[in-house]
Design a protein around this nucleic acid. Structure first.
Lengths: 299, 299
DNA sequence: ACATTGGATAAGAATACGTTATGGATCTAG
DNA sequence: CTAGATCCATAACGTATTCTTATCCAATGT
C-alpha cells in the first residue's frame, strides 16, 4: 500500500471513473487499472463493484476511502508543516462573490507586501462550495457571511455591516436621509441572483418586515446590479462595502430607517488541517482590515 | 514522500545509525542514505545532524518522526482493518512472566480451538517492556498486574488473587492453617528477582506489615523459586495461580493470616491502534477464564 | 444493430530503486 | 600518534517496478 496508489484510488472515487481520474492524475488509464488491481490483490478483496460500466465502491472500498483520506491529509499536512518557513509557499484563500472584490483587495495587498514570495491563490466560490473546499482542504481560509453550517470547521467573526438602499442619482429618495420601507412599495427592484447568500439575507429581511419588493430584474453580479440601478432599471439593496468601492456619481446610497438589515462577515478554516504560518498571518491581516478604528486602505 | 521511505526513516531513528537500520530493514546501507537524501531534498531541510559519526535528529527531523509514526500507524491499522475477517491473521499477546505460564494456557487453548487459522504470538515481557510494546503497537494485548502507569493505554481488570506462603512438605508450618507473619521472622526466604513486578508487590506488602524477610537467595523464575523451596532453601511468597499448576507433593501452600496480600490481574491494550476482531475475541476469552463461577480449565 | 464509453490485458519503454564497490571522515585502541 | 574500525556518502551499474501504447471486450444507449 503506497501513497501514490492511495491518491489514485481517491481520485477514482472522486471522479467516478478510472478514465476521468486518469486525466486528473495526469497518467494513462491502464496505470490506474494496474494500481487498483495490485491494491486489491494486496488486500485480498475487491474495492470496486464493476457492474458493467457502473462503478461502485464495495464495503471494503468505502472503509478504505475514509482511511485513505485521513492518511493523505496527514501526509500532506506533514509535508506542509515541515516545509513551512512562514515566508515561501502557497496560500489558498476563498471568498464569496459579494465580499471578494470589496473587502479582500486591502488585506491581499498588505499581505503581498509582507510576503512577496508567496504563491497566493484567490478563489471566488458560493458559500456552499466554499465550505466544501474548506472541508476538503482545497483552500486554507474562506471569507464569508456568518452564520453557516459549520460542521468540522471553525469560524471567527470579523465585522458587521449594514445593507443600504441604492437609488439612481436624482431619484426622489436620493435626498432626505433614512428611508422607510413602506415608501418603497411602488418601486421596481433589481435583485441579486438566488445563488448568492446575500440574496437570501435580503429576502428574509424583507419578509420579516412584510415588505415584498416589486422585482423587475435579477443579476448574478453585484456590479451589474449597481449599473442597472444607475440606468434606472430599479432600486436595490447592497452591502455597505459595495458603496465604498463605488466612485460613480450616478448612484446614491441611502440608509434604511428602523432596524437596519445587517450581515456578519467572518473567516473560516479547517481545524483538522495544518494551519500554516501564512494562513495565520493572513487571518491577522483580515482582522486588522476589519478593525474600523484603524482601517487598512480598502482600495 | 512515500511510505517505504518514512518507514526507513523511523528505523534509522530507532536504531541510531544507518548501518544498523539497514540490517533491520533488510536492505543495504546506501539504499537508506539515498532515501534520506531524497527525502531531505524534497523537504528542503536536513533531517539529521551528521556531526562526525554522531547522528542526531534536527528539529525538522524530530517533527517528522512524530508525524511519520502517526502515518505509519494509520496505514498499518488500515491494512489490518481491511484484512480483518475475524478468522485469519496474526494476534500478538504479551504477559509478564509471573502470569504467563499460569493463567494464559487456558485462554490460549480455548482461543486456538475457536480460531485455528490464526498465527498466535506470545511474548513474555516485564511490565515496563510490555507497556512499551503496547504503546508501539508491537503487541495487541498485554496481561499484567494492575495498577500500572497506563498513559495512552487502556486496561480492564480481570480478577484478583491472593499471595500464599509456600513451605516445603513436612515443614512445621505446613499444617495448622493460616500463618501470622511474626512467626516467620527466623525463617530464610527465597525471593523473586527484582525485575519482576511481583517482587515489588511482595516487598511493599512486607514493609506495610513491618516484616523484613531473612533473604537467603533470589531467582529470576517463579518455577525455580518453587524448586528451591522444595529443596529446603527457604520459604517464599507466590501467587495463588502458581499453586494451581503445582502437582508436586513436596510443597505446601499456606494462606497468610490477617489481611492477605493480593494482586489484581488485568489486560491492557492501545486504544489508539486498531483493535482486531481477534484481539477482541481473545479479550473475551480472558474474561471468561477469569470468571470464578465458570472457570476455564486452567490446565 | 451499431457506435460509444469505459475497463482490462499484453508487450515494450522509461524510470526509479537497490546493489556493489569505494572513498573519506571520525572515533578508538594499542 | 598511528592503525584499524566504524559509519555515511557517492558513483556506476543492473534489475525491478511502473508507466505507456496498442488492442480487446463488455455494456450501454440511440
Amino acid at each position: 500500500m503506497d501513497l501514490a496508489t492511495l491518491r489514485s484510488f481517491l481520485k477514482i472515487v472522486e471522479h467516478g471513473t478510472f478514465t476521468r481520474a486518469a486525466v486528473a492524475c495526469g497518467v494513462s488509464q491502464p496505470a490506474l487499472s494496474q494500481q487498483v488491481a495490485k491494491l486489491e490483490a494486496e488486500l485480498g478483496t475487491p474495492l470496486f463493484e464493476r457492474q458493467g460500466r457502473r462503478l461502485k465502491l464495495t464495503e471494503t472500498g468505502e472503509r478504505l476511502r475514509e482511511r485513505a483520506e485521513q492518511i493523505v491529509a496527514l501526509v500532506d499536512d506533514t509535508a506542509r508543516e515541515l516545509a513551512d518557513d512562514g515566508r515561501t509557499g502557497r496560500l489558498a484563500v476563498a471568498a464569496i462573490p459579494t465580499i471578494a472584490p470589496y473587502f479582500l483587495p486591502g488585506p491581499l495587498k498588505a499581505f503581498r507586501e509582507q510576503h512577496p514570495e508567496v504563491r497566493l491563490e484567490l478563489h471566488e466560490l458560493t458559500t456552499e462550495a466554499l465550505l466544501k473546499a474548506l472541508r476538503q482542504g482545497d483552500v486554507d481560509l474562506g471569507v464569508l457571511a456568518l452564520p453557516v453550517d459549520g460542521r468540522y470547521l471553525e469560524f471567527e467573526p470579523l465585522f458587521e455591516e449594514s445593507l443600504l438602499l441604492v437609488v439612481p442619482a436624482g431619484h426622489r429618495l436620493a435626498r432626505g436621509g433614512p428611508v422607510r420601507l413602506d415608501r418603497l412599495r411602488a418601486e421596481p427592484f433589481v435583485l441579486l441572483d438566488e445563488a448568492h447568500c446575500l440574496s437570501g439575507q435580503i429576502r428574509s429581511f424583507c419578509e420579516r418586515r412584510q415588505f415584498h419588493p416589486l422585482e423587475t430584474g435579477r443579476s448574478t453580479q453585484l456590479a451589474t446590479v449597481q449599473e442597472m440601478v444607475a440606468l434606472g432599471h430599479g432600486l436595490s439593496f447592497v452591502p455597505e462595502m459595495a458603496r465604498r468601492l463605488d466612485t460613480s456619481d450616478q448612484r446614491v446610497y441611502v440608509p434604511i430607517a428602523g432596524e437596519a438589515p445587517r450581515r456578519t462577515i467572518g473567516v473560516g478554516w479547517n481545524p483538522y488541517r495544518y494551519q500554516s504560518r501564512l494562513a495565520r498571518a493572513f487571518r491577522e491581516q483580515l482582522r486588522s482590515a476589519a478593525r474600523p478604528d484603524e482601517p487598512s486602505r480598502s482600495r
